[in-house]
């Protein structure tokens, strides 16, 4: 049963992913990406990772995709009129490289995952089953104990991101002077 669901999901995910790439319309592309995110969330549910599944929906499908759509609509992108000659074949070479990367990875994993023994898989599954505590408890406990330093550092990262965004987005007049808030009010 699980296998059937898994393969159905797999097909839908790949379909949506192709939709992201092949759609000429950026809004449609973004909506396909929402589909990919939701399918991924379903995959996580299948692995009994409820917390990650809901984070996937709330953060990615909800917040980030809305942001994407805003940006797309604000920029009002149109199709590029002319393509210079040296860029015409990028699609082909890019696709070829991507496919090569995919097959190399697939081949590598196929060859080497032969080493994964059945008992080892069973042990992992037993481990998952034995974990009676909700995973959100496990996750949050780790986050504020053993992983507290990266957790705290994230705040520094966000501070840098905010400073950077303000610097890059601040408006300037023709001479390049900063337009300050006080000036606008006055």
């Amino acid at each position: 049963m699980e296998l059937i669901i898994y393969y159905t999901l797999f097909a839908i995910t790949v379909g949506f992913a192709l939709g992201v790439l092949l759609n000429k319309n950026t809004v449609k592309s973004a909506m396909s990406l929402v589909g990919v995110m939701i399918c991924l969330a379903a995959n996580f549910l299948l692995m009994r990772q409820e917390f990650v599944a809901f984070i996937q929906i709330i953060v990615y499908a909800g917040a980030i995709m809305v942001l994407f759509l805003f940006v797309i609509m604000l920029l009002n992108l149109r199709e590029r009129e002319t393509t210079p000659w040296y860029l015409r074949s990028t699609r082909f070479w890019g696709g070829a490289l991507g496919l090569t990367f995919f097959f190399v990875m697939a081949w590598g994993l196929q060859v080497f995952s032969a080493g994964t023994t059945e008992p080892a898989m069973a042990a992992v599954q037993a481990d998952l089953a034995a974990r009676n505590t909700p995973e959100i408890t496990v996750l949050s406990t780790k986050m504020i104990t053993h992983y507290i330093v990266p957790f705290l550092l994230t705040s520094v990262l966000l501070l840098v991101a905010v400073i950077g965004a303000i610097v890059m987005a601040r408006r300037q007049d023709e001479d390049g002077n900063e337009i300050l808030v006080e000036d606008e009010v006055a």
Partner: peptide, 10 residues
């Protein structure tokens, strides 16, 4: 593993 067992490393 968390339950005390061990899995072979791949």
């Amino acid at each position: 593993l968390v339950n005390g067992g061990a899995a072979a490393l791949n």
